[in-house]
Design a protein around this nucleic acid. Structure first.
Lengths: 343, 343
DNA sequence: ACCGTTTTTTCAAGTAGTTGAGCATATCAT
DNA sequence: ATGATATGCTCAACTACTTGAAAAAACGGT
């Protein structure tokens, strides 16, 4: 029926026999300035032709595209949930998130080489003139330069789980490591554990949270029990998980409890324990962190720190939107605490 | 340093002391038509000002936004993988997927009420003039009307896992149910099973695949062994999984093998079996379908039909891009077979 | 019939670029 | 010196729409 292009406002105006300006105004809701009958004619014509607003043009004119860029690592269920929260809030405000993945989509727990690839991705977002950006700390660190550009243009940037205080450049949403690791520490010590190990992730520059989480945990245990936690970590490529787990379990005396900074490391412990014939939780307690969806399907179910990722996403999105509304003023650092709850 | 808006081409042209047309041409790579020195001047000015292309304008002018809409149900790891494939291919072509979620993001296995909400979402995509659409069958059925609009505009639409043959309206990527369920059937019969149950999903209009999968499986078993498969299914809300599983396991005689049309249903069987003291796989074999990531963490690991979701995503993306290139011609139905492989 | 309002509608100048056609200037053959 | 080409660059129209300002039409009062 129709030709090959989308109907334009011009077509609608022609069909209704009014000027484009009239059509534009009526379709945007300024109908009170026009005659009843004219309005009907325009509305009807638009309906008939199947006209719809063109946000590209709107974006060009107002500088607002109603799109928010989101940069996250290849998904695990934590990020899926964060994303769900973001989608929910943005959709309600007629915004749309555009998500780019940085890192190796091939193998999930592996996103090293993102540096220039990430630059490309961030460019794709900026080329489309997103109104704001939500991102994950590693990118915040890696693409700091790009941030300056954004700040200059007053594009709000919200960083999840990272502190950027030195420079007041981005808003920040973060997990309260102190509070939540303390909760884990209290949980474990209240069960009587004294020989406790900590299994950290890779501790690269952009995984500062891992360091913070491990250190907070060590500190909490020291404060409560006065004992020292022995800590391990993954190597730079995250490839030695199983070996580390075996080493921890092979200690003499064997730790009676292990805290892993994410659920990913807990998996290694489970696997190593199974192959060594060590029972969980009878022989050793394992507490993870993050509440990934596989936590519940493990045998026995993994005790894990819930991070409420959807709530994090929601807040991040709300924060960008707020910033957009006041679209102005120096962006102050605003760290939101997340109350983490032990399962 | 900079003002509050992004640098415009006009600024670059002014700084380099050439016309906008010259600047535009040079920055788009037509530098051979200009003097060496002029090119340098323009390039340098652009770099200094931090100018970047504006795809909004490009989109307006060419009708191509380099964005592809993606409508999928709230994620489980199957869809995450599909999405990974889509991202990979699109990014390589300098395209960006814009993903909208339809359905209830609150509770994962629950996406009933999407009907008008989905309409809103699809509108958000069309308002932004996406160049193409990749979507999941339920939407294809629910928003059929919108499709006509897209087809009239020659916007390519690729439907994943759904046949749309009556109307040659969309391309289609699908799992080859016949081949894959036959593989499952052969696997089970070769193990000697004769009393086989099938546990289907909800079989609503937009879950036609569930029906196809169940029926293909029943047919395959009938053809190979000449025995009838007894089938169950979830109720309309998907809320009675555990009860169904218990009912299946409570049959007398108890089936020696259960095929579940997705891994989700398999979970219920695992849970029910655990509570009834029935061992897997000693007492009953369970075969799932989809290769969700929790399949491997179950005890014992779930035997499942691998659907290679990333490959599906890749192909879907490639298909849209191909269609865009020839941007023309009646969109023929192109069903891609996926070879499913038994783990 | 004419003036002052009010209502309804249009003009024209933006938004940020792209692009076919054309105009100078320089180079070369005659 | 003249005409033909080639080189280097610019004009102006176009994309689809928005919006402040102004014009046209309608209406009321005298």
């Amino acid at each position: 029926m129709a030709g090959s292009t989308a109907p334009r406002l011009k077509d609608v105006a022609q069909a209704a026999n009014v000027s484009m300006s009239a059509a534009s105004r009526i379709l945007r809701g300024e109908s009170d300035r026009f005659g009843e009958e004219t309005c009907q004619r325009v509305l009807e014509a638009a309906r008939q032709l199947g006209w719809r607003r063109n946000l590209l043009v709107n974006g060009m004119q107002t500088g607002r595209t109603k799109m928010i860029g989101v940069m996250i690592p290849p998904f695990d269920s934590f990020w899926v949930d964060v994303l769900a929260g973001i989608h929910l809030v943005l959709a309600a405000a007629d915004y749309l998130p555009i998500t780019v993945w940085v890192g190796d989509c091939q193998e999930i727990p592996h996103f090293e080489k993102g540096d220039e690839q990430g630059l490309e991705q961030i460019s794709r977002l900026l080329d489309r003139r997103v109104d704001g950006l939500i991102l994950w700390p590693s990118f915040a660190v890696a693409y700091y330069g790009h941030f300056r550009e954004l700040i200059a243009r007053r594009v709000p940037v919200v960083v999840i789980d990272h502190e950027f205080s030195e420079d007041q450049i981005a808003d920040s949403i973060e997990t309260d490591e102190q509070r939540s690791t303390r909760a884990v520490a209290e949980h474990l010590t209240s069960l009587g554990h004294e020989n406790i190990a900590c299994f950290s992730s890779r501790e690269t520059a952009w995984q500062a949270w891992a360091v913070r989480r491990r250190e907070s945990f060590e500190k909490a245990i020291a404060e409560i029990k006065g004992v020292e936690v022995k800590s391990w970590r993954l190597n730079q490529w995250g490839s030695n998980g199983l070996e580390v787990a075996e080493e921890i379990l092979g200690q003499n005396p064997r730790p009676s409890a292990i805290f892993t900074v994410t659920d990913h490391e807990a998996l290694y412990v489970y696997e190593a324990a199974a192959s060594l014939g060590i029972r969980i939780p009878e022989d050793v307690s394992v507490v993870g962190f993050a509440d990934l969806d596989f936590a519940a399907t493990l045998q026995p179910p993994l005790t894990t720190m819930r991070q409420r990722p959807k709530e994090i996403g929601r807040r991040a999105a709300q924060l960008v939107l707020d910033r957009l509304e006041v679209s102005s003023q120096p962006l102050a650092l605003l760290a939101v605490d997340f109350f983490a709850k032990l399962l």
